[in-house]
């Protein structure tokens, strides 16, 4: 029998598949003879910490997905002037990589992957909930668009700052710090694209904690 070639899968589909396989494997292990379907005492004790970690990772994924959606919407429109578009074009891929890295950590824990915004109106509701100024579809020029992206980057930086208060697993702490630092770099470039277009105004603070 000749099977058709597999359809190309998106990164999210691949990760969701991995998450489902991990969850199935965990269930199978629990139901296996000898396992008795009962988690060992040490695992039971670890549940609250693991649950808090999953919750924190899901929060990070949600906010990163919203940022990714904003970049995609802005970059797929004609609102940006060419130099600004060139400067921030790589950032969408960076954020996508952040989402993938965080989702992989969630998948490894057999946790549910949060969905991103399904529509512009839903994304705008999420933006309003996070008190981000500007609404997708109603941006009046490139400065509006850049300010919205800057505000969202600051929300993401803030989310990672809070995550660093809560997370304790070294690999997750390092990942979150790396993403937070990259977000700060995006922040600096976005500031530079806004008036007064000066280097000094691109990194105006000695300590950056984002918006919480």
């Amino acid at each position: 029998m000749i099977l058709p070639p597999p359809e190309p899968q998106t990164r999210r589909q691949l990760l969701r598949g991995a998450a489902a396989r991990t969850a199935s494997a965990a269930l199978a292990a629990a139901a296996a003879p000898g396992a008795g379907g009962v988690a060992p005492a040490s695992a039971a004790v670890a549940v609250p910490a693991a649950s808090a970690t999953i919750d924190r990772l899901q929060r990070l994924v949600r906010v990163e997905l919203l940022l990714e959606y904003c970049y995609r919407q802005v970059l797929s429109s004609t609102i940006l002037r060419p130099d600004a578009r060139r400067a921030i074009a790589p950032f969408e891929g960076h954020v996508e990589a952040h989402v993938a890295a965080l989702e992989a950590r969630l998948a490894a824990r057999g946790a549910t992957l949060p969905p991103g915004p399904a529509s512009v109106s839903q994304a705008n509701r999420f933006l309003a909930r996070r008190r981000v100024g500007g609404r997708l579809g109603h941006l009046r020029g490139d400065q509006d668009a850049l300010r919205l992206l800057l505000s969202m980057e600051q929300v993401v930086i803030g989310a990672h700052f809070v995550a660093l208060l809560k997370l304790s697993e070294p690999a997750l702490v390092e990942l979150s710090a790396q993403i937070m630092a990259t977000g700060a770099q995006h922040d600096a470039v976005l500031r530079l694209l806004l008036p007064p277009h000066k280097l000094g105004s691109a990194a105006p603070y000695g300590l950056v904690q984002g918006v919480q």
């Binding site: 930086i157 710090a177 700060a184 600096a188 950056v208």
Partner: peptide, 9 residues
Amino acid sequence: ASILTVDAQ
């Protein structure tokens, strides 16, 4: 980490 971010900038 809030120092790290500024050095990255």
